[in-house]
Structures are given as C-alpha cells and as structure tokens.
C-alpha cells in the first residue's frame, strides 16, 4: 500500500521544503518514500507541485485515482490539485491568496472561496485553514508550510508521529529559524484540535469557521 500526498502552491511558498520534511519524517519512521520535484520554468510565481509517496512504490507519479491527501498552500492551487485527480481523500487548504497575474492583467479579481468551493469542492473533504494568520502568530508569514504540516499531523493525516517531524525540523532549520517553525508546527497541531470539533458538529465540507 502507498500513501500518496500532493503538495501544491506557488513558487516561493516553501513547497519543496515541506515535501522534504514530510518525506524525511516518514523515512525516520522506517517507511520507504519517494518524492517528485518538478522544477518547471519558473523561479518564482508559477504553480508548483510536489508529490510524496509513502510506502511500497516505484515511481514518483501518483495515479489519477489514488491521491490520499492534498495539502494546498494557496487557494486556487489547492483546487487545481484537487481537479487534477479523479478523486482525493482529504484536502487541507490554506486560505492564502496569491493573485495570478492572468487575473489582474485582465482586470479580474480573485475568485471568492464560496464560488471555488461550489464549483470544484464537491465530493472532496476539504478543510480550510487560516494558515497565513497562524504563521504570522508563529512569527513569520513564510511558515505557512509548517502550519499546514502541523494541522495534518493533528488530524492524523500522516503515517508518522509528531516527534518524527520535530526531529526533522531540528535537522532542517538553522537555530535562528527553528523557533518560528517549531511554534508554527505547535500552533498547527493545536488548531487541528479545534477543527476536528468543528467538522464533527457541522459534518459538511463547507466548514469555514475554523
């Protein structure tokens, strides 16, 4: 069995870093991991995806029908990731918005969450996460990726423990940045506790109150 994760976002959001942390933690827990990094044309600003496959598998490509978890660091990119599969087990979605210039150039505004949900969110269990605010609370807007890892851990969406992730964080970040990222992870885990309750109460996919 393989557990398949797609991380999606915009170049510069720390998607590859997040993929590495998840992968290294899974490796630490004794599992086989394969991760794909497709560096497209863009240095910054384009859509970026990283796939992590945990378990017994050969290649980095996730089959259309077997994506277990989408972690989106940006709204539109989360839906783009969901749409690229036939079905997705669970999606964690940061409510961060990064405007694609294809919109502003044509004098259009960023679509609202409700519309996106209605159009693309049906049939997928989506957890919106106010990761941007929490990252700021942790000390840096750049820590959205780690907040999301924390939330996923708290919701038991990773086949590994928080300790294994903490070990990798300590290995990944220099002293100066470790504090912020540890805090981001903790806040993410804490938030997931509140989210669980919300989901159970509403039992709908449109849980926006977290």
């Amino acid at each position: 069995m393989t557990y398949n994760i797609r991380l999606a976002g915009v170049g510069g959001q720390g998607i590859i870093t997040a993929g590495n942390i998840i992968s290294e933690a899974a490796m630490r827990s004794g599992q086989k991991v394969i991760m794909s990094e497709i560096h497209g044309l863009s240095q910054r600003g384009g859509s970026v995806t990283v796939d992590v496959r945990i378990g017994d598998c050969y290649g980095p490509i996730i089959s259309q029908s077997s994506c277990d978890l989408v972690i989106g660091l940006e709204l539109i990119e989360t839906f783009r990731a969901i749409e690229s599969f036939e079905n997705v087990g669970t999606a964690l979605m940061s409510t961060e918005k990064i405007n694609p210039i294809s919109l502003s150039m044509h004098k259009k505004e960023y679509p609202c969450l409700e519309d996106l949900m209605e159009k693309y969110g049906m049939g997928t269990r989506i957890y919106p996460v106010e990761a941007g605010e929490i990252a700021m609370e942790a000390g840096s807007s750049k820590a959205v990726n780690i907040v999301m890892i924390g939330v996923a851990l708290g919701l038991n969406l990773f086949p590994m423990t928080a300790d294994e992730v903490v070990y990798v964080l300590k290995d990944t970040f220099p002293e100066k940045k470790l504090g912020i990222n540890m805090k981001a992870l903790e806040l993410g885990i804490a938030l997931s506790g509140r989210m669980k309750t919300n989901i159970r109460e509403n039992s709908t996919i449109q849980n926006r109150s977290s």
Partner: peptide, 17 residues
C-alpha cells in the same frame, strides 16, 4: 480523461517581482 472543463485562472511562470 476524467477532468474536463476546469477553468481555474492559469498561473503560468512569470517574470519575478
């Protein structure tokens, strides 16, 4: 192919800020 009609705003690579 399973997905058709997706019209999310495209995000092609762009010149950096």
């Amino acid at each position: 192919s399973p997905k058709t009609g997706v019209d999310l705003p495209p995000r092609p690579p762009v010149l950096c800020p």
